[in-house]
């Protein structure tokens, strides 16, 4: 009895004398979990905060790629507010985002409904439509640029062969819609596949019950299918917004910002790397960041909810 007590005392004494080694402290769960996350946090902070602070700082200066810069206060921001070359691409980016998402969702819903059945070769069809998704957007846009060329482009040759006449795909008024179409072409397989997966996972008995109750196809679709698909529609909309507000590659592959197709990122690129106006470019960059944050803040909660619900 006394011996045991002694032993406890000794153990206590040892643990008092011997401090836990650094390794022991770090592998304690309380610290260990943070240690695993630390590199990620450092990387994200460094790579996000440095550009942000830098752009904010530069936006108060008039400066080129090299040489002196002069402090001009809020002059860049004042210029920007009156600059149609800022507001027009901004509006256009918004327009492109809406057009592409709506079109992709509609095509996706259509094809998802069409392919939501058993048919011969269904796996091949589903696999084939995924092919363009991972191909570099830049390369695809160059290819489309060629296919839609006025004289020798394949699409116009087909059009004139079947009597539709040649279309000026890259005319100033319509070029931006052609760019939308190219983007939609590459990405409708995404929404179609997501919605098809959603449709396949819907409970069958609900639809049978609706059928028994005499519900018509359109009514079932609007009242049953759509509400049940809505989390997926939210996810598609949010993820596509994230990609679309930064659309750049298809512009480089086709019009290079000419014929009224300039978008947000292209405008920042042109100001900073073609005109070498770093000060004003930074101002535009900051502005486009803030707009992204505003859009992000509005949509982010929904995205997290949707991701959480399905994860």
């Amino acid at each position: 009895m006394a011996n045991a007590k002694n032993n406890v005392a000794i153990v206590n004494e040892i643990s008092l004398i011997r401090k836990p080694s650094i390794w022991e402290t770090l592998s304690n769960e309380k610290y260990f979990k943070w240690m695993l996350v630390l590199p990620l946090i450092i990387v994200l902070l460094v790579f996000m905060i440095y550009p942000l602070v830098f752009c904010m700082y530069k936006s108060f200066f008039q400066s080129g790629l090299s040489g002196n810069s002069t402090f001009i206060g809020l002059q860049n921001y004042r210029t920007m507010l009156r600059d149609v070359n800022f507001w027009i691409p901004l509006g256009r980016t918004f327009q492109v985002t809406v057009i592409c998402i709506v079109a992709e969702l509609l095509i996706g819903l259509g094809l998802g409904t069409l392919w939501n059945r058993e048919f011969r070769g269904q796996n091949i069809v589903r696999g084939l439509i995924l092919l363009p998704l991972l191909v570099a957007p830049l390369i695809l846009s160059i290819v489309w640029n060629f296919l839609l060329e006025y004289n020798i482009g394949f699409v116009n040759q087909i059009f004139s062969a079947i009597g539709l006449g040649r279309v000026r795909w890259w005319a100033p008024g319509g070029a931006i819609y052609t760019i939308c179409a190219i983007t939609i072409w590459q990405w409708f397989p995404f929404s179609a596949s997501v919605l098809l997966a959603g449709l396949k996972s819907l409970p069958k008995d609900v639809f049978e019950a609706a059928k028994v109750d005499g519900a018509k196809g359109w009514y079932t679709f609007r009242r049953l299918t759509l509400p049940m698909l809505s989390p997926l529609i939210v996810i598609i909309t949010l993820l596509r917004t994230m990609w679309l507000i930064r659309l750049f590659d298809p512009l480089y592959g086709t019009t290079r910002g000419a014929v009224n197709t300039e978008l947000l990122d292209w405008m920042v690129y042109r100001t900073s790397f073609i005109y070498f106006d770093i000060g004003y470019g930074s101002t535009l960059a900051i502005m486009s960041l803030f707009l992204t944050i505003i859009i992000g803040a509005i949509m982010f909660r929904q995205l997290i909810k949707a991701l959480n619900a399905s994860n």
């Binding site: 550009p51 830098f54 530069k58 930064r246 920042v268 790397f273 470019g281 900051i286 960041l289 992204t292």
Partner: peptide
């Protein structure tokens, strides 16, 4: 951080 516009990081 994925929503960070590409052009913002380009200049810095």
């Amino acid at each position: 951080s994925r929503m960070f516009p590409g052009a913002v990081a380009a200049i810095p």
